[in-house]
């Protein structure tokens, strides 16, 4: 659009801009993943409620969920994983650390987060699989 002062303003691509560049696409996927984090949270709250009703209820709930909505679980799992990953890799920006006056290298901060994430996941996995068996 040509302005009165002669300058020309290029119209922004209001709806398709995020398809133009890898970095914009990755950002939009991160934003989209929030939706699945929401879905995951709702499932989790429902699961906790069922668990409070006893073991049989909970088992029925999980197997019904898997039998009918396995695809949703898979997609949710993938997006939640991406969500966590995408935030962990930007942690050095929000939480720059210094150790005796020197900046801690970003990869250490990211690596520490990733390792912590992995340990927590294994721990929870362990409780669920072994805890259920007892």
């Amino acid at each position: 659009m040509k302005l009165t002062n002669g300058n020309y303003v290029r119209p922004p691509a209001r709806y398709s801009w995020w398809l133009r560049q890898g970095r914009y696409f990755r950002y939009m996927m991160r934003e989209l993943s929030s939706l699945f984090v929401g879905i995951f949270s709702i499932i989790m709250i429902c699961g906790l409620y069922q668990l409070s009703q006893g073991e049989a209820q909970f088992t029925a709930f999980t197997s019904s969920l898997w039998n009918n909505f396995w695809w949703l679980s898979v997609i949710t799992f993938l997006f939640v994983t991406y969500h966590s990953y995408s935030w962990f890799i930007v942690t050095p920006k929000a939480m720059p650390l210094r150790f005796s006056g020197k900046k801690v290298a970003p990869w250490i901060i990211i690596g520490a987060h990733m390792i912590l994430w992995l340990i927590c996941s294994i721990f929870i996995w362990f409780i669920f699989t072994n805890g259920g068996a007892q």
Partner: peptide
């Protein structure tokens, strides 16, 4: 909204 493109 922390797209991060500026830093890239």
């Amino acid at each position: 909204s922390f797209v991060g493109a500026c830093s890239e």
